[in-house]
Design a binder for these strands. Sequence first.
DNA 1: TTCATTTGGGGTCAAGCACAACAAAATCAT
DNA 2: ATGATTTTGTTGTGCTTGACCCCAAATGAA
Lengths: 399, 399
Amino acid sequence: MLLVTLPDSTARGLGNESLRRENLSNLLRLVHSSGASGHSRSELTALMGLNRSTIAALVGELESLRLVEERDPPPNARVGRPSPIVTAADHVIALTVNPEVDAISIAAIALGGRVLERRRVNSPPGIDSDGAVEITAGAIHSLIDESLAGRRIIGIGVAVPGQVRADDGLVRLAPHLGWVDQPFTARLSARTGLPVAAANDASLGVRAESTFGAGRDIQDVVYLNGGASGIGGGVIVGGRALTGADGYAGELGHTLVNSAGVLCHCGAIGCFETEVARASLLSLTGLTDARADELEQALHDSRDPAVLAEVDRQIGYLAVALRNAINILNPQRVLLGGFLSALYAVAPGRLDELVAQQSLRASGEAVELTRAELGADILTVGAGELAFTGLFADPASLA
Amino acid sequence: MLLVTLPDSTARGLGNESLRRENLSNLLRLVHSSGASGHSRSELTALMGLNRSTIAALVGELESLRLVEERDPPPNARVGRPSPIVTAADHVIALTVNPEVDAISIAAIALGGRVLERRRVNSPPGIDSDGAVEITAGAIHSLIDESLAGRRIIGIGVAVPGQVRADDGLVRLAPHLGWVDQPFTARLSARTGLPVAAANDASLGVRAESTFGAGRDIQDVVYLNGGASGIGGGVIVGGRALTGADGYAGELGHTLVNSAGVLCHCGAIGCFETEVARASLLSLTGLTDARADELEQALHDSRDPAVLAEVDRQIGYLAVALRNAINILNPQRVLLGGFLSALYAVAPGRLDELVAQQSLRASGEAVELTRAELGADILTVGAGELAFTGLFADPASLA
DNA sequence: TTCATTTGGGGTCAAGCACAACAAAATCAT
DNA sequence: ATGATTTTGTTGTGCTTGACCCCAAATGAA
């Protein structure tokens, strides 16, 4: 009989293995976040603050796990012996899934953050979770067969437009899909034989921005995304994603911004996402298409008083939501995505002014409002981060 | 010339020393949080998940640093060789300071959480920061001379009713003291020759509750305290205090609860602390004295419709504030202190109901509303935690 | 081309840490 | 008293990082 001593989850002590695992983990994360350009070994030595010998050993171990690759540096470098460039091995990939109202997007993303494949499969309106599992699994299988031969698939990350229980990925509520307490994650895992993790879409968005976008090297970030189906929020605290006790944290779209507002589907009154919505901007500008840049252009060009008034009204409520978030979380930077980014672009000074006026001065004067950087791939990148989480936590666990 | 290689602050690698430091740190924290009863060495072994030999070495090191003491276990224990009880050495102390409107409280607290001394020095109304430094330093010196001989003073922790910059303790704004950008912390340190750290009072309150009170063993806690001067908030995320980028996080008293409310001193409208305030409860119940249990009793006994209406109104706004906090932070437990605790005690079902109705279901159904446990010493305990922070981070750094 | 200079990899050895194994001690139950 | 049980103390081993020496690979100047 083989007895394996697993560390107790409540154990607070660190063994020698933990040390190695932590260093391996941080190194892999560092290489991953450096993307296609990578870091030289000497850069890694400086960034990690460890001895050269140690970095060599760690890189060697990651290399033998085939998680990273070393290549010769470009010839026109500085004086001295050239240091090999370490990049993430891009045959190591994650698959990502984003179920939407009328379609399911799936993609493949490599360690290092490069998106390899994107597909979008239409789904019948009002499809239930099990139906979506079938469509997703089918699309994933054909994707694998057709263009992912020889790749090592670490797992699947799902970006859900709703609340997801962190420990088992149960979809507690996805209002626009009509899903309540659906085990989408577990079913997809059973159906594909791959590990599947799921989380709220905006929470994954901020992870993406934090790793590759406007939140790089910032430890405390609030992200607000305005989408067709409402406003999502995600928070990074001390460099780590804020999940809360069960994974539901970051729902900034359901904070109060107007006591005289309407009843939200969530049961409360005057939620941020009922007062600030893309639909009214689209209808006032006469747009039906939903592209972000088009809406922004239309808002920018419009001289229609009704449009200007609506923009000003929404910016006012956006400022209130930001006041709540800034006073509670004291972020260093706030990232605005989707139509909130367009709203900000139309009148940046106005929003800055309102936020400065309403937030506590200490928190408000230091915060930077910024537009999110990542584009259409943001959820793929974020869901990839989620799928890679286990690998990052213990790179050596891989066979 | 002596060159000391300091680890870079951005360095992500862990050396062998970090491992030891981390284990020592966790062990000391564990012993500290076990208070006067302590833990046996075998309990520590189980809790830390390390080898007996390792625990023995770690305890030995802490003992030789005179931070912990071992004593024989009580005789009527279980079968087997008795395991020595490890307790925090209570000659290791921190001093704490809490400047209030009309007085300054100072205290001495030992490692392990026992409060040794409490003093309250009246201060002239409207005293400025430098004047308060003088009074505090004088009181501290006499406290040391009179009753702290032979104790090892680690440092001073200051609980400030206002916003405090984390890195240098600058008091950015303490509205009820009338202080703006006052270097109270630095001056007190210069005046006493002791290291001084400062933080917002409610943030320290939640640290205290998290270590010794209703937040023990809970990883995600929101704390709301209703005091004479307003409502303070503190947050624990993943077992760690939420500071935000600069230390101003947790200001739940300044989230919007009523768009039709009055202008707050902070510049915003309808803040939680302008709508929910102790003053109106005191005046309606005809109380002038401020003791918490008396107010609670008065609220409980009253049949005056005006009192009942005001209680209901305040509970309504408290529910809104909780909805904002719960949706953003998804805490496992919410602790109510001060008059908010009294408010909750009067109609617990009503508040539970409103919170369940207004919060997102996933976050709202799991959260427990609870009354804070710690009494009058809460700020002393919290400020002690703050003062001990450096010691916990690196116990071996002590001479 | 040659040589000094700079930068960084490879390998070996030492130090620190946690852990396993064995022997001994202290208590309770019979 | 004797045995069972639990835990401690001690010693040696393995793993990980770190310091050191030597050498390799690039640049730049003579």
